[in-house]
Design a protein around this nucleic acid. Sequence first.
DNA 1: CAGTATCCCTCAAGATACTG
DNA 2: CAGTATCTTGAGGGATACTG
Lengths: 148, 148
Amino acid sequence: MTKPDHVSHEPCPVARATSLIGDRWSLLIVRDAFDGIRRFSDFQRNLGVARNILSDRLRRLVDAGILVPRAAAEGSAYQEYVLTDVGEDLFPVVLALRQWGERALYAPGEAHSELIETRTGNPVPLMRPRSADDSELTPHDTRVRKLA
Amino acid sequence: MTKPDHVSHEPCPVARATSLIGDRWSLLIVRDAFDGIRRFSDFQRNLGVARNILSDRLRRLVDAGILVPRAAAEGSAYQEYVLTDVGEDLFPVVLALRQWGERALYAPGEAHSELIETRTGNPVPLMRPRSADDSELTPHDTRVRKLA
DNA sequence: CAGTATCCCTCAAGATACTG
DNA sequence: CAGTATCTTGAGGGATACTG
């Protein structure tokens, strides 16, 4: 479980990490997992990813020990995917990427989703107050705790 | 300069960031830049990336305001690529990814490169001491300051 | 040395149909 | 609902030749 097959053998940890979660979807799945999403169809609808791709990415994330499949509550035949401790350790990565994106990739007045995960009790520093306009936000974003 | 063309228009900063630097090479170029690499051929040799791809990624990183091209020292006709302030702000991203990779993607005794950038005076916390075996390290890694 | 211009090819991703 | 199987496409990436 420490190092799944599809992870590169390079000695640099950054290179290995990007070989695993540096694709188009994996980190966004993790982001959604931090936001409380657990079900296959919720990931699918939220991301707009093809189902076969989602299936593959979930499997890879499970192989890597980032997510763990569990039976959905009380007698359900279906599964849900929750973050493991290793997966939770990705929080600084998602947070750092998010904070950088806010500062570097938005026009001065442009709105962006907050996506502050209700996770551990960690205080999460924000770089600046959010815009007043929420109209552009996706369903994903609206479920998220706002700080302002 | 705030938001180059090829960055997605999604409201989530994580999604935008990955759309820009979430490909196979961009973040590794940034990693190398933190490690002091500035010249085209040095990036190319160190990464093993095709030259046309490197050319394209450098252009994208410049467009995004992460790198800035400067004339190489004293009368040289060639350029070098150095991190801007926006690029330097990616340090927490690279560091977080690196620390997570160390913990999650290596066998217990397996060696990994340290890649602690000699940058600002920031103290950089390490998760554990490095292994004694450096034989697997690439040229990139050997230029790097070791902490142990 | 530092790229650019082509050509080619593989694989990631999407669409769709099917199944327990 | 939660996937799997199959097919197809297109973009990302590699190799090579060429240029100032």
